[in-house]
Each structure stands twice: as C-alpha cells, then as structure tokens.
Design a protein around this nucleic acid. Structure first.
Lengths: 184, 184
DNA sequence: TAATAATCCTACATAGTGTTCGTTAACAAT
DNA sequence: ATTGTTAACGAACACTATGTAGGATTATTA
C-alpha cells in the first residue's frame, strides 16, 4: 500500500476515534472528521463512501484485536473436557481485550447511532456463543437460538455496567458475573 | 384543546407510525413526515422542536398504553404472596399489550436510530423490575442493579425473538421464556 | 358575528452531502 | 536522478434538509 494512503487512513481513523469520545456518532459529521484529520473532502470520499462505512471498517479493525486472537487460542484447546472452565476463560479473555480499547468502547457504547457497531459486535459474540454450544449439549426449555441471544445480551449488559462503573472491576470479576448469570 | 390542533397532532402521529414501518427512523426526514401528513412546515414546528421530540412523545403515548395500566392493576394485587406468580402475570400482561401495538414495535425495534425509544422503554421495564425486587428479597451473587438490568435486557431479547418469529408464539409462551431464563 | 388562534404559503439563511476536475506533490521503479 | 503513476488538495457545484420568519387565510370558540 502507498505510504500516503496509509497515512491518510490512519489520520482518519485517529480523528474518528478521538471525536467519538467527544460527541455522539450520530451528531458527528464528515465535515468534523475532515477538519480533525486535516484532510480534504475529496480525499475522504476516495476511501469511504459514507460515515457508516468508516464506522464499519473501524469496528472490524477493533474486533480483529478483541476476538480473532482469543477465538484462535481457544480453538487449540480441548473443548470437549472442561467445557465450562474454558468458556469462562474465553469470556474473561474478551473482557480483557475490551479493557485494552476501553476508551473506544466507552465512547461508542454510550453513543447514539452506534447500531452498526453493535450489530457487528453481536455477530462476533454470537460466534463465541456458537463455539460454546457446539461442544456443550444443550437441552434447556428455551429455544437454543434464543438462549444464545440471551447470553450475547448478558455479555453486553455486563459490559455496560462495567463501563458505567468506569472499569473498576477486574476482567475476572465481570467474567464471573457473566458465568453466574449464565448458569444460575 | 383546539380541534385543529388535535387533528394535526393526530395527522403527524399517524404519518409517523406509517413511515416508521417503511423506513428507518434515522433515514426518516421531517420533510417526509410533512408530505405524508399533508401539513405545512411551520405547523410541524409549532408542535415539535425536532424529530426526536416527536419520537419521544409518540413513545410516551405508547408506553401509557403498554405499562401504566398493567402496573396499576398489579399494584392492587397482594404482591407479598405469590410474588412469582404475580410477576409472571405482569410480564405476560406487558407482552400482551405489546401485541396490540405489534406493527409499531416491529417498526421501531428493527429501525436504526431508535435509541430514544429504547432508552424510554428500558426505563419503563426497569420500573417493573424494581416493583418485583421491592417485594422479593434478593440475595444473589450478582449486584442487584446489574441483575435488574439483565432482566430488562432479557425481556427485550425475547421481544426481538418474538418479532423475528412474527409473533407466532402466544404472550403466555414468551412470558414463560422470560420466567425460565429469569429463574433458571 | 367578532375575536382568537392555528394552519398555510413563501422566502430565506444555514449546513452538510456527494461529485467533479484541474493542479500539486509524493511515491515507486528503473 | 529521472520519469510515469497516483494520491492528496482545493475550489466549485448541485442538491437536500433544517430551522426561522411574516403575512395571508381559514377554522374555532364564545
């Protein structure tokens, strides 16, 4: 990739991340991003069709860090034994990576108009839930699909609680909350 | 209230509800509402400062129907006995009222930019959770505040599942899902 | 019927979007 | 070092939506 291209994309991403911690995604204009990144209008449109496309790309970039690694690591483990133990650690792992990007998650989750981010986030979390249920034979009274969605939302509510508490708890503690609300 | 005023407010509400079932709240413009409701620009602004204010008022109007009645009814019951039984019925009651407004809930919950609605909806559901825990002595391992938020989100996930299934289940069945994921 | 007040219509300023195109400057490859 | 390529710039433009203002018109109330 051309050095100039790389530079502009970085500039745009950095400006975006900075601004999302100051105002809502919704109220953020492309105009604002241009000024913050100090690039020209046509340059932006050379890389992104819309503001949403930018958010989507930034989201994927974050999720690569938060999910890909953890899922790969856990795949090498023997999931058939100690299913629960491993799942707990996977969840903890993810919360741990979220902590690395805490400012961004804080900014986006509080923000209006972040449905694109949340939709992708849910997709990734659903993959995690899938990986659990592909090893654990589920026979609860609620449909499996619903059970999975519930666990995804539980992860998110706990994350919101964590953010609200300004990340006072450790990843272990919040993973504990998750597991307790998950089994109980 | 002046008859004319009442008429315009109805026209606006009706147009809004109709449009929200066709496109996302976010992409909906005031312009669109004016055309659909067949009113003039200045008339709209005589009643609402912004599109968000309109959504807020429409939301409150719906919640009056969905919540107020059910909460009042349940208040007259003796909550100290059969706490669980009563709670189950309260939840069922709410799902039942949601069914009355199914098209609107479907439209809004699927819609982008509906955070205002969801925020208010969560507030109302939290009141319901509060009413439960004010009678039931909670002593779980998760903080009570978090436990309440989890139950609110559970209600919403189940609602989304219900919508996705085009309301095939009965309110009894979905209330059952809620209770099962709530205690389990 | 007269006073009141809501609606309408037109116009306007403002702000953001998305596109175009000629110019300038940085880069990669030889 | 030179040259062809291509990204970034910047200015201009059409377009769409917001929000405001004022006077004319019409419906309501008393």
């Amino acid at each position: 990739m051309d050095k100039r291209e790389e530079k502009t994309i970085n500039k745009i991403h950095e400006a975006f991340v900075k601004l999302i911690n100051q105002r809502d995604y919704e109220s953020l204009t492309i105009q604002d991003i241009l000024e913050e990144a100090k690039i020209s209008r046509s340059t932006f449109y050379a890389h992104y069709k819309t503001k949403d496309e930018l958010l989507l790309k930034v989201s994927h970039h974050i999720f690569e860090h938060v999910f890909s690694k953890s899922l790969e690591e856990e795949k090498s483990h023997d999931f058939s034994k100690d299913t629960f133990y491993n799942y707990r650690h996977l969840i903890e792992h993810i919360y741990y990576h979220v902590l690395d990007e805490k400012e961004l998650f804080k900014g986006i989750l509080k923000s209006r108009g972040s449905e694109i981010f949340m939709k992708e986030f849910r997709k990734e979390l659903l993959k995690v839930a899938d990986s659990y249920y592909s090893n654990y034979h589920y026979q609860g009274e609620i449909p499996l699909e619903l059970k999975k969605s519930i666990s995804v939302e539980e992860f998110i509510v706990i994350l919101n609680y964590w953010i609200k508490n300004d990340f006072q708890e450790s990843p272990e503690e919040v993973a504990d909350y998750f597991i307790k609300s998950f089994i109980n």
